[in-house]
Design a binder for these strands. Structure first.
Lengths: 202, 202
DNA sequence: TTATGTCAATGACATAATGTCAACTAAAAC
DNA sequence: GTTTTAGTTGACATTATGTCATTGACATAA
């Protein structure tokens, strides 16, 4: 039961053309400067057509973000069951690297997202959802580490989780703007700081 | 030699009225939704007058930001010469608290700034300047702590400094949106995490 | 095969905001 | 008292958005 009549096929094709065009225009000009006019010109459709498939400019970006968001969710959901401090550090380093690598893989999109987060309510909400997923997952990891007496039990997990994610997020934004990032050095520093702190004796 | 003729006085007064009006409108509606039309209506001036004193909407905000930025610079420039680890932690906790308190004191403005950073190039640059000042100051603090063998010498100061400031910044943005922030709990957690890490034995 | 209904596609239009500028007015200079 | 200057002004050109009545190609049923 494929519900793809010729009509629906054409409609899907039109939408696809619009998404691709939006991507092109956004990546070329940035989110703010892009206009619906430019998008429909590249997509070779009429002006009103854009509004048939998308509520507004934000809506285009949300569509474009969708699949990359899924990938982020997967990284957030990574298992974390270390039995030693060393193992914990390795798992953490691994997850950071995956997170940052994923962002770097989608460099162009991340740049646009960063810009759009400040402009569009919807995009901001979408990013907040990603944040929440990571923070909730990290909170659980900390609770586990505390239960195993690996982590300092006096610290409130949700605060620590936010702190840790915020560091990740900010370095991530820094990376996507950077030209030749030294990923490994960064991952190492973040992990050491997070687990052992700056003032711990060497 | 006061160069305040009646004319110049009136001009200054007009500009002052516009700034105050912009503040009112921004705080009421947010940056994005505010228009020049609304500002000049509150200020009771003509439309063109706004453009005599300000290049555009961003320019209004930059003017409003100015004095608060000075306050941030002062916090960034705070001296840091601890001789023990305990003293270092106290100085750090103190500076964090000052930073966060300053932001909370200017809650409304910070909210507007957060919004505008994503929208306006100029405002973004202004905030980056504040960032750079803090990061450079923190870098020096870390270098000092390392020279005194208080801090782990294997870590690259500029990376640590960025990590530390980013944590501060993100919690700050969180705080200005929060209703009843538990500042002391936050400061304590941040300081412990920064200096001793999560996995350090209790 | 033809007639009828439906829906994707369209662009003109109403609306709203921006930044510019020639004209105006009141103060300063002469 | 007249001229010059500087601050003020709103109309205008421009640019973008989102809506909607209209169109015509395709689906459906007789």
């Amino acid at each position: 039961m494929k519900l793809t009549t010729k009509r629906q096929k054409q409609a899907m094709e039109t939408k696809r053309k619009l998404v691709k065009a939006a991507e092109e225009v956004f990546f070329e000009q940035g989110f703010q400067k892009s206009t619906i006019q430019q998008i429909i010109k590249v997509a070779e459709t009429g002006y009103g057509t854009a509004y048939v498939y998308f509520k507004n400019k934000d809506d285009f970006l949300v569509e474009i973000m969708q699949e990359t968001m899924e990938e982020f969710y997967q990284v957030a959901a990574l298992p974390f069951k270390p039995s030693t401090q060393l193992e914990a550090e390795q798992l953490i380093a691994n997850q950071v690297k995956l997170f940052l690598s994923l962002a770097l893989k989608n460099k162009e999109l991340m740049k646009i997202m960063k810009e759009a987060i400040g402009i569009s309510e919807i995009v901001q909400d979408k990013w907040q959802t990603i944040r929440d997923r990571f923070i909730s997952s990290i909170t659980n990891d900390i609770l586990f580490a505390q239960s195993q007496s690996l982590a300092n039990k006096e610290l409130v997990p949700s605060i620590v989780a936010r702190s840790w994610f915020y560091t990740n997020e900010m370095f991530m934004w820094e990376l996507v703007e950077s030209d030749n990032p030294n990923l490994d050095e960064l991952v190492l520093h973040m992990t050491i700081l997070y687990t052992r702190g700056l003032y711990t004796s060497v």
